[in-house]
Design a protein around this nucleic acid. Structure first.
Lengths: 153, 153
DNA sequence: ATAAGTGCAAAGAGTTTGCATGTTC
DNA sequence: GAACATGCAAACTCTTTGCACTTAT
């Protein structure tokens, strides 16, 4: 989906729910879709303070990010570090994450076979599968090298 | 592994690290292995207050649960609700979780094929896989029935 | 004796909320 | 102008920490 189409569907989403299109919501939306990074709410708020544009308070950042998740524009990705990370999902294919347990680096991957087995498992238990979260934790290539170097001393 | 053997390995673990076997640690250990439930630290602390035994403070609950995780006796399972859940893992085969997004009910499963693909994916990215967390979210059988009933009205 | 453990209360993250004020539709 | 949104600061939840005191080894 192109950016303009996503933006349209965001405006549509607001209209459907009788929510208003405010400068703050526009800015949060645009910024969230203007990055390919994963970000935390606090990080996002710091971008709001540093960059130009309509002032957006911390409360509005939290409220708007939650709204975007509800609307299915963003997804939460929780790395186990206490803070929730967000990433945009509309216009992107579903994927899961590899997280470096040392430096936090994140890689994305998708595996058709795993997706199918997940569906089969949910069915076996009588669950209606909605979403899933899969994170693989381990040492990324550079942290492995680092670890080997340290071990050699 | 039998309970007594796990208890022995816990005592061994403490000895190795020059940690002391205190009444608090014994009580936390026994209680954690005396349940098959998943529990949060706060929940666990409330058990400590309600049930009989040596007094254990909130700080000690947090410290000791973390210690048990380090020792590989417990594992964290983070359901995305903000609080960390624990479950004992020694004497239990590795498994992943199906979580009901409505009532929070948790089912455990294990899939050899998925485990193998995870390993393969990590290798493809040059990661040294340490652990993973996979949670499937959806409606459990009884919440599905509930939802259907509500929709029928 | 000594190193480690405990409880307490205070501090810290990250996140949510009540309320008065401001804005969109 | 009515309903909704925002900013602010205070509140909240979960978790961690500094410190004086206690205990296992």
């Amino acid at each position: 989906m192109r950016h303009s189409a996503i933006r349209k569907s965001f405006e549509e989403f607001l209209r459907e729910r009788d929510l208003k299109l405010t400068p703050q919501r526009i800015r949060v939306f645009e910024r969230a879709f203007g990055t390919h990074e994963h970000f935390s709410a606090e990080e996002f708020y710091s971008w709001m303070r540093q960059e130009d544009g309509p002032r957006v308070s911390r409360a509005t950042v939290y409220r708007t990010l939650a709204l975007l998740v509800e609307g299915g524009f963003l997804e939460c990705l929780d790395t186990g570090s206490g803070e929730t990370l967000f990433e945009h999902v509309v216009g992107h294919r579903h994927h899961d994450h590899l997280v470096c347990s040392e430096c936090g680096r994140i890689e994305e991957f998708f595996d058709e076979e795993i997706e199918m087995r997940q569906q089969a498992i949910a069915e076996k238990f009588g669950f209606e599968l909605e979403t899933h979260s899969m994170r693989l934790f381990g040492l990324c290539p550079s942290c492995r090298r680092e670890a080997r170097r340290a071990a050699a001393d």
